[in-house]
Design a protein around this nucleic acid. Structure first.
Lengths: 258, 258
DNA sequence: GCCTGCAGCTTGTGT
DNA sequence: ACACAAGGTGCAGGC
C-alpha cells in the first residue's frame, strides 16, 4: 500500500464530472490497483476513488514516466520507506497521477495534479489481511468451532483463526490420537479451497513442533472436482448442514431428507 | 489525519459481530472522529470502520491512557511527524484502540488489538475544499425540466417534484392534447425504475381530477428488460443524451453517431 | 431530529 | 456477463 500526502487537485470524469480544488489530501493506492482520495474530514467516504482494474500514468517534474506503477511499488521499495522521487531524492518530484479504467464504451479517468508532496511511503502488508469471510462462511466457522466433531469424529478445537504468515487457518483441532488437524471452512468447496488448504498444510508441516498435520475441507457444498483433488492429496472433506449445526434439524434425518 | 500501520486484530460488535484476524493493516483516523481499517486489497471499502460521532479509549503497554484522543492528535503533534509512543520513544507502545459510538439502545464498538506498530504519523491537512460535481440525476432533471420536449414531442412542464403521498414525481407535464404525463428520471433505467413509475401512475390515476395519465421513463441508459417491461405496461421510455441536453451536440447527429 | 431517496453507491450471489 | 438484493450501507436534502 502506498500512502501519499500531497497538495493536489483532482478531476474525475466518467459517470459524472467532478472537481476537487487544490488542497491537502491523502492518496491511498492499494496493491490491487484501487485508488482513494481522502480528506481529513468527510467520514467513511473518499472524496474520489477508482476501483480495480486500473491503469496508471505518472509524471515527474511534468514529464511522463513510463512503466512506474504505484500499485506495484510495494514490491520494489523498502517497507515503510519513502518512495524515491518525493522531491528530496535524485528524481524529479511526482507531479501527476492519472488513473484510468475501461468502463464499457466510455472510460473512467481520475486525474490527480500534484502541487506538493509532503509524504510518500510504501508498506508491504502481505496477503493475510485480504482474507475476509462472508456472512455464511463466518457463521459456519462459529458453529463448527462450537461443535468441531462435525468436522471429524472426536475432533477437539484448539483455536480459531490459527495464525500463519500466509493467513489464518480457520480451525486448528486435535483428533482422538492428539494429531493436529487443519480445517478449512467454505460455503462452497471448490478446487481453490483445496489449494488454499494445501498451502496452509505445507506451511504448518514446516514447523517441526507440529509434525504431521491432517487437513479437512468443510463446506455446505463440495464440488465433485474438489472432492477428487482433496482425496488425491490425502485430505478429508465433509459437507455440513447449516440447519443441523443450528440444531434446527436432526442429523440422522438429513440422510433421507435430500 | 492520523495514519497507523500496524499488525492488529479487529473486532466489531454492533449490528453484527465481526472479527478480522491478526494481520498488517492501515488504521486511518480522521479529525472528525472517523476510523477506517484498510487492508491493501479490497478496493473502495474499509474492512471495518466507524462513522462519527465517536469516543476513543487507548491503551499503551496494556494500560489505559485516559484523555488521549487519536482524532485530535493532529492538533497536538508536529505535522508529518511520528506520534510519540510508537515503541521507539519514551512512552509505552500503543497496544489497543477502542472506538465507541452510541447507536440507539445498543452501542457500536470497534476493538483494535495492536500487536506491533510499524508506523504512526499525523498530518494536519487543514480544511478540505468541497467536491463540485455534475451529471447526476439532479442535473438530468434540471436540464429536462428546461427542455421537456426531450421526454416526448410537445411536452410542456407543469411542475418538478410533483408531490404524491408515496413520493414526488420527477416531472409532471402535459402532452400536446393537454393529457397528463408523469416523467420518471434516472441515470440508469432499470426494472425498479419502471416499478416506481408504475406506483406513481397507480396513485395519480386514483385522482378523478387527473383522469388518464401517461408515463415516461427518461434515462441516460435504459436496460433492455426495463424497456420491455415499460412497453408491456403501456409506458414510453426515452434515452436522453446529456451532451445534447447541454447543447454541446446536435440532436440530429446522435441518430447516426452511435 | 426524523425520514426519504440517491449513490461514480459497493458488494455478494445466482442465473 | 448480467440482473438482483442487501448493506454495520453512507449521505444529503426536506419537513
Amino acid at each position: 500500500m502506498r500512502l501519499i500526502v500531497a497538495r493536489c487537485e483532482v478531476r474525475y470524469s466518467g459517470r459524472l464530472e467532478a472537481l476537487l480544488p487544490e488542497a491537502l489530501r491523502l492518496l491511498m493506492v492499494k496493491s490491487d490497483g484501487s485508488v482513494m482520495v481522502h480528506a481529513d474530514t468527510g467520514g467513511f467516504k473518499p472524496q474520489n476513488w477508482m476501483t480495480p482494474p486500473t491503469v496508471f500514468e505518472l509524471e515527474r517534474g511534468g514529464e511522463p514516466v513510463p512503466g512506474e506503477d504505484p500499485a506495484l511499488a510495494a514490491g520494489r521499495t523498502a517497507d515503510g520507506q519513502p518512495v524515491d522521487g518525493d522531491g528530496d531524492g535524485d528524481r524529479a518530484p511526482l507531479t501527476r497521477i492519472v488513473v484510468r479504467k475501461r468502463a464499457g464504451s466510455t472510460e473512467d479517468r481520475l486525474d490527480i495534479r500534484i502541487v506538493e508532496v509532503l509524504s510518500d511511503v510504501v508498506h508491504d502488508m502481505g496477503e493475510a489481511a485480504a482474507l475476509e469471510k462472508s456472512g455464511v462462511e463466518r457463521e459456519l466457522q462459529e458453529l463448527l468451532a462450537g461443535a468441531p466433531e462435525h468436522c471429524g469424529e472426536g475432533f477437539r478445537l484448539v483455536r480459531r483463526e490459527w495464525p500463519t504468515d500466509i493467513g489464518p487457518v480457520d480451525l486448528m483441532c486435535r483428533d482422538p490420537d492428539d494429531g493436529w488437524v487443519a480445517v478449512e471452512i467454505k460455503r462452497v468447496g471448490t478446487i481453490e479451497a483445496v489449494e488454499q488448504l494445501t498451502r496452509y498444510l505445507e506451511r504448518l508441516r514446516e514447523d517441526p513442533g507440529m509434525g504431521e498435520v491432517r487437513g479437512v475441507l468443510a463446506a455446505q457444498q463440495i464440488k465433485p472436482q474438489a472432492r477428487t483433488l482433496a482425496e488425491s492429496r490425502g485430505m478429508d472433506w465433509v459437507e455440513v448442514d447449516l440447519a443441523v449445526l443450528r440444531g434446527e434439524r436432526e442429523p440422522a434425518l438429513t440422510l433421507f431428507d435430500v
